[in-house]
């Protein structure tokens, strides 16, 4: 079902899911999903609620390790190395594969402390380096100008959209290679959403972005590749243009034309 034939989708992959299965107890949430995610591009995961797209995303940096009863089978490779290999360290993996969550989840600390959190846990002590990292990350997240005068105020005082951009800055501060985003704009208003989308457009120049979205317009606007999920399976994968203009699968067409979902 997945078209990986040469010519149609030629991908230099950064992240590669190979025959991935995810179980919650006896329930199989992801069924034999394989997907290549290219370097320095945006890959969108779309599909109706409960189709497994978030579950799939969380398998890409081992967040399921935290969920009691969750089990992952198959491989996910980062530059060819399996992140589920016995000697793969989830702390290192999550350092290289960052994650932005559905709801902004700032720590109840100052803006500065939020952004410096990652570098600090990875051992950075030097104040000047931390200051520089915080500024660079906030600039990258297009938030610096809005917060530079109140870095020592609580991050909880920011608006929802600012909080989410700060959460992106927080991920950028640990200098990941891949950024996973789980419906990062679903809790935000249209203006904040468009800022996040502009930001994603900038980020893909340097990072590989995998984004779950329930908004097909959003997927069309920001992604190069799109995978359509349904009932835990990847029904179709291709360039975003192809998925939205010439879907090959009936289910994909039904979904993008709004016949279900």
């Amino acid at each position: 079902m997945i078209d990986v034939s040469p010519g149609s989708v030629d991908i230099r992959e950064k992240l590669n899911a190979i025959h991935l299965n995810v179980f919650y107890g006896s329930f199989q949430a992801i069924k034999d999903a394989s997907l290549k995610m290219a370097a320095k591009t945006v890959t969108a995961l779309i599909g109706p609620s409960g189709c497994g797209k978030s579950t799939f995303l969380r398998a890409l940096n081992r967040m399921h390790d935290l969920t009691p009863g969750a089990r992952v089978e198959g491989e996910v490779t980062l530059d060819g190395q399996d992140i589920y290999a016995p000697d793969a360290d989830p702390v290192v993996i999550r350092h290289r594969i960052g994650m932005v969550f559905q709801r902004p989840n700032p720590f109840p600390k100052t803006i500065y402390e939020n952004v410096a959190y990652g570098p600090k846990i990875h051992g950075e002590r030097d104040k000047a380096t931390l200051d520089a990292t915080v500024e660079r990350s906030l600039r990258q997240a297009a938030l610096w100008d809005e917060v530079k005068d109140r870095l020592n105020r609580s991050a909880l005082d920011l608006s929802g959209g600012q909080q989410q951009r700060m959460c992106i800055a927080r991920v950028l501060a640990v200098e990941p290679e891949v950024i996973l985003m789980d419906e990062p704009a679903s809790a935000l208003d249209p203006i904040a959403t468009s800022k996040i989308e502009d930001l994603i457009g900038e980020l893909k120049k340097e990072f590989s972005v995998v984004i779950v979205t329930h908004s097909m317009q959003q997927a069309a606007r920001i992604s190069e590749y799109t995978a359509f999920f349904h009932l835990g399976e990847i029904i179709e994968f291709g360039t975003t243009t192809n998925i939205f203009t010439r879907p090959r699968e009936k289910k994909t067409e039904d979904y993008i034309t709004g016949r279900f979902g």
Partner: peptide, 22 residues
């Protein structure tokens, strides 16, 4: 909230760091 634990773990913190710092 668990979302704070996820945020910390997602940044590559260990469980102990997450407990102590968040």
């Amino acid at each position: 909230p668990d979302s704070l634990r996820e945020a910390s773990i997602g940044l590559g913190a260990t469980k102990w760091q997450t407990i102590m710092r968040t």
